[in-house]
Amino acid sequence: MKAIERGILSSYDYKRSSTRVLIVILSIVVLAMVLSMLYPIAVTFLNSFKSTVDVNTFPPKLLPRDWIGTNYKEGWNFLNLPLFLRNSIYIFAGNLFVSVAALGGAAFALSKLNLPYRKLIFFFFLMTLFIPPSTYIVPNFVNLKDLGLMNSFFAFWLPAGASAFNMLLLKSFFDDINNELFEASRIDGASDWYGFTRIALPLALPIISTLAIFIFSAAWNDWFWPSLVMHGDNRYPMATGIYKQVIQARGIKLNIKFAILSMVSIPPMIIFLVFQRFILRGLHLGGVKG
């Protein structure tokens, strides 16, 4: 009869009426939580299909009276979304490349090459984790200015290779790969470069996927830093463009605003639903390692 493993509650508990009442109450609490999580998201999409009059009625109705799809066309034309999209993708792709090349290489060397002083070197990287970013946000900005990187994508690409957290992520993955694999290839005369590009990186594909999702969500989310470093629409990523032209703007109609917000929410939501496994794994690594 014992089909499911017990948790805190046992099958005996389930038979008691006081427990049943408790379960009903907690189920309602969980249902309320789920609804309050989903309602604001649903409302974003539903409002994007309402007419201007409809979206401004008080009290607001959940469903649109008429479904107006042309809001999306109007939203698409309201600002140069393809340009912002391109900039976001530039930042994402460059950041990912630099992270894998610089941090992946360093993590591989620290994990697999038995270098003298590797603990000391690792400590040099790791120590930066304990310096809170907002304490050096100002000199970081001045530093980029001094290096002549203002309004350049390199201001994002190069610092992407200076993330101790991402290096830790890669290194702990390499640590779990068996050393014998690399030693065997070395005995066969393979270089370290071969070991990195042909053995380590292909094996690290799962963790690189997790890393890619982290980097994507950072590139897609970050609106403030690009608004300082980049000047003008030609360089703004999606989040900054939306912030400047939709969130800050006064003139935009509410339903058009929601259409634009829906459009920028769809890509990350699809990525989440498709790559759940990688995201939730990364979440655990991220949460505990800090």
Binding site: A102, G105, A109, L113, G161, A162, A164, M167
Partner: peptide, 14 residues
Amino acid sequence: FLLPATVLFILFLW
């Protein structure tokens, strides 16, 4: 292998 990361860490963090 450590060189690029070291340079970037110095330049953009330290």
